[in-house]
Amino acid sequence: MTPPVTPPMKLLLALDDGPGARRAVDEAIRIAREKGATLDALFVIDATWDVFTGHDWLSGCNSRIGFLEYMQGLEEKAAAESARAFLELRGDMPGELLTAPGDVVDVIREQAAKGYDLLVLSNPFTRGLEVMRDAVARLTRDAPCDVLLVRADTK
């Protein structure tokens, strides 16, 4: 009954900075340990802030640039914090830590299509402007691999 030797399972954890972030990381690590899987984590730096402020065409001159630079700074800080927390919890488990800028859902989908078996993310998924959109719905609609939604901590 033992299955033929298969390459180790590949997990992708989409990192976010919302209230459910910690539980998602814990779950992903637990599953990866159980299955002896590799665990890659992906933090997407939201690069769609410019379009969000695009509603107002008069936001003239440097104010918008200053704003976008400020947002970029915050996004990078969140990325670093998230990465630090993940690495601490992961210990010496095999896997990569990826950081990429772009549209959050698009980047996650693209990455998940690269031969992963399971995508783990917290629900609700709050990365950057995804707080305003329905990231989970967009991700799960014909998702490229299995998806595990981890609910946020309930007090």
Binding site: T53, S59, R64, G66, L74, T126
Partner: peptide
């Protein structure tokens, strides 16, 4: 929005609040 965007960095607004 123009004014919100112009003020945000100066008052350390958080992304979620800003959105």
């Amino acid at each position: 929005v123009s004014a919100a965007v112009a003020t945000a960095p100066g008052v350390r607004a958080k992304p979620v609040d800003l959105a």
